[in-house]
Design a protein around this nucleic acid. Structure first.
Lengths: 187, 187
DNA sequence: CTGCTTTTTGAACAGTCATTCAAACAATGA
DNA sequence: TCATTGTTTGAATGACTGTTCAAAAAGCAG
């Protein structure tokens, strides 16, 4: 088989959901082989190590998440409407019985204590997302106000990403968002 | 040695910080023996399994956290002042270089996907804390309003517990709290 | 001192971990 | 056809996993 019989991206997609659900430490190579259909050798041939594989999966997740933000912003009338829809999507996700929050946040929490490269990467991506929100909010508000609102938004997103684990929390979350971020209903 | 040469609570305190920092999966029995000074046999004699040990550590952490809330409320003029101080303490904690968030939240995120007993326990404790806040807030507000404010408070706490991992976030967090929870400055 | 009970010890268990590698394999270009 | 190149295989590596257990040790009661 001189030509590889799998697509790098397909493998990554399978690996993302495994790592996302279980975290780094709890996901074994054995499980990865099962999820991808690849043998250990192939995995190590294509991706140098478990850590590198995780990093690439996380990067792909981050890219997709950022892409989704831009997409929403392009599809909606104004920035606040876009943000409202993004938040509504998060609430919708939290209704799923196998809800597993945000891959970046989970990685940050799991690997923070070890000064890990993966932690730093996740942390950087999250702060990058905040910057993106800041830029969009600058369309409606002053730079200073946009920065403050973006920090509020990220805090609320982090909050509902955790609150979403509580049973039957969707309605409460929706009301909480409206109470915490009243400025979303301006414009 | 017919009398045990360690205190159950001291062992738990050591174990709490290990599990808190590293999480369940990444903390090995070998590390636990190092952190506690106990040999494997003693650990399994005193605590049935790694899972039971973790559960007991988590319970002790939760009890201490809840105790700290009641203490703050007893020490302050009114409920809102107490909450403000609790939040200020969280901000202070986030300044530490080895900040590791909230043990309950980390456990919930790490172990959610497996329908784990430990996840359910952490989740229950967090919703219990929300209930406690609701009761305190009932002193100042109607039952309905207190419930809504407690949900907002929990969301913000969850949020800053994650936001706290970002470098130099303390000032931003303080401003964000004031913006998100303006009612804390009433009374 | 002699049994009895409780605790400690640390080696040993079977299983799993991440990773490696030589060999088998398949496609390409000459 | 044949050597070359890149890919897949799957067993094997040594280290580490959570857990067990028989033996040793130490206190107590008689």
């Amino acid at each position: 088989m001189a030509k590889k019989n799998y697509q790098r991206e397909d493998v990554l997609d399978n690996v993302i959901s495994l790592f996302w659900q279980q975290g780094y430490a709890a996901s074994s190579i054995q499980q990865i082989t099962k999820a991808t259909g690849l043998k250990p050798g192939s995995i190590y041939h294509e991706f140098e190590s478990k850590e590198k594989l995780f990093q690439e999966a996380l990067a792909r997740y981050a890219t997709a998440s950022i892409g989704a933000i831009h997409q929403k912003m392009a599809d909606t009338e104004n920035v606040n409407e876009g943000i409202k829809q993004i938040l509504a999507d998060l609430v919708e996700q939290s209704k799923s019985c196998d809800y597993c929050g945000c891959f970046l946040i989970k990685t940050q929490l799991e690997l923070a204590s070890q000064g890990n490269t993966l932690y730093q990467f996740a942390s950087m991506q999250l702060s990058n997302i905040e910057k993106i929100y800041t830029e969009y909010l600058s369309r409606l508000y002053s730079n200073e106000q946009a920065k403050a609102y973006a920090a509020q938004l990220m805090t609320v997103i982090f909050g509902i990403r955790t609150y979403g684990y509580q049973a039957d929390s969707a309605n409460t979350i929706t009301q909480t968002i409206n109470a915490l971020l009243p400025w979303l209903n301006e414009h």
